[in-house]
Design a protein around this nucleic acid. Structure first.
Lengths: 157, 157
DNA sequence: CTCATTATTGAAAATGGTTTTCATTAACAT
DNA sequence: ATGTTAATGAAAACCATTTTCAATAATGAG
C-alpha cells in the first residue's frame, strides 16, 4: 500500500527539472521503492522490488539510476562492510532526520540513530573550522559510523 | 634504508606468539613495508613493494596476510572510495597517534589528522554511553572520516 | 638433528558486484 | 505529431578479491 502523500508531486520532482534530467518511469519507480522502505537496500534488492511492478526494468538501469541519484544528492550510498553498496533516500525537505549508523559486526544489522547528532554537529563545526585553518581543507561531508555488538549478538560472546 | 629501530624484535612479534600464528617471511615482509610508509597502501601496492625484495611472494598471500593482520588488530583496513581497500599499520604500543582521515573528493588525496581527536573521544564516550543504554548496543569501534576539497583542488571550483 | 604434522603458500581459476558497450527505445521541446 | 537526444536493456567486460588444491615450509616431538 502506498504511503500517505496528499496527492501532490513528490519532493524530488523539481530537482529533476532544475538539473535537466528526465524523470522516467524507472527513476520514479526506484525512488518510490526507496521512499517506502526503512531498510538500507542494495542495488539488487532495489532491482527485485522494482521488478515486481516493472518487470522490464533491468539491473543495469538500477545501477545507473542510483549513481545519478547519488550525484544529485537525492540518495546516500553507504558501505556497511557486506561487500555491496547500500542506498538510502536522503532526508529530503521535510523528511527523515539526519542520522548515523550503528553496525553490528556479528550479524550485520544496521541501526539508524538520530540521538547525539547535536553533539556530533558541534564536533563537526569545530573540526571543520580547525582543519580548514590548518590544512586549508574545505569539508563538505562526513561519515560517522559506530561498530559493535547489537542487543541479540552480545549473548554469544 | 631501514627505519631507526634499536635492533630489538618488532612489537608485533609477541602478538604472533600469543595468537599461535607463524611469523613467516611473507608476514614479516608485509609488516615491514607497512611500517616503512606513511601512505595508505592498497593490496597491490603492498604486493609490488614486497615483490622487490621477495619476488616469490604472491598477491594471494598478500591478501591473505592482510586479512589475518586486520583480524589480529595489527592493521587497519580503510575504504576511501577508490574501489580498493587500503591498509595502514595500527599505531602499536609506542607508535603513531590515533588519527582520522580527510579525503579529498576531487583528487583522492588522504590527509591524516590527529587534531581534535580529544573532542572526538569525548563525543565517542558520550555516544557510546547513550546508545548503549538506548539500544543495548556495545560499541567496540568507530569510523570517522571527513570529505571535501583539499588545498590544491579548491581552486578548480 | 630428523621426521611428521599442520599451517602457509603460489598459481590459476572462480567469484560477484559493478561498469561498459552498443543498438534500441522513450522523454520532452518544438 | 515529430525529431532530437537522453535513457534503457541485454550481454559482455571489468577487476578487486576469494577460493581451490597441490606443493612447501615452520614448528614440535622424539
Amino acid at each position: 500500500m502506498p504511503r500517505c502523500r496528499r496527492g501532490g508531486p513528490p519532493w524530488w520532482e523539481p530537482r529533476f527539472q532544475e538539473a535537466g534530467f528526465r524523470l522516467t518511469i524507472s527513476r520514479q519507480a526506484i525512488l518510490e521503492v526507496l521512499s517506502n522502505t526503512k531498510e538500507h537496500l542494495s542495488a539488487e534488492e532495489i532491482y527485485l522490488a522494482v521488478h515486481k511492478n516493472y518487470p522490464n526494468i533491468g539491473l543495469t538501469t538500477v545501477y545507473r539510476t542510483l549513481e545519478l541519484l547519488v550525484d544529485m544528492g537525492l540518495v546516500f550510498k553507504f558501505d556497511f562492510g557486506d561487500k555491496r553498496a547500500r542506498y538510502e533516500l536522503s532526508p529530503g525537505p521535510a523528511g527523515k532526520r539526519h542520522h548515523h549508523h550503528l553496525v553490528c559486526t556479528n550479524c550485520g544489522r544496521v541501526i539508524d540513530y538520530t540521538d547525539f547528532i547535536d553533539e556530533e554537529r558541534e564536533l563537526l563545526r569545530r573540526t571543520e573550522t580547525g582543519l580548514s585553518e590548518k590544512y586549508n581543507f574545505k569539508i563538505t561531508d562526513h561519515l560517522i559510523q559506530f561498530y559493535g555488538l547489537c542487543d541479540e549478538c552480545q549473548g554469544q560472546f
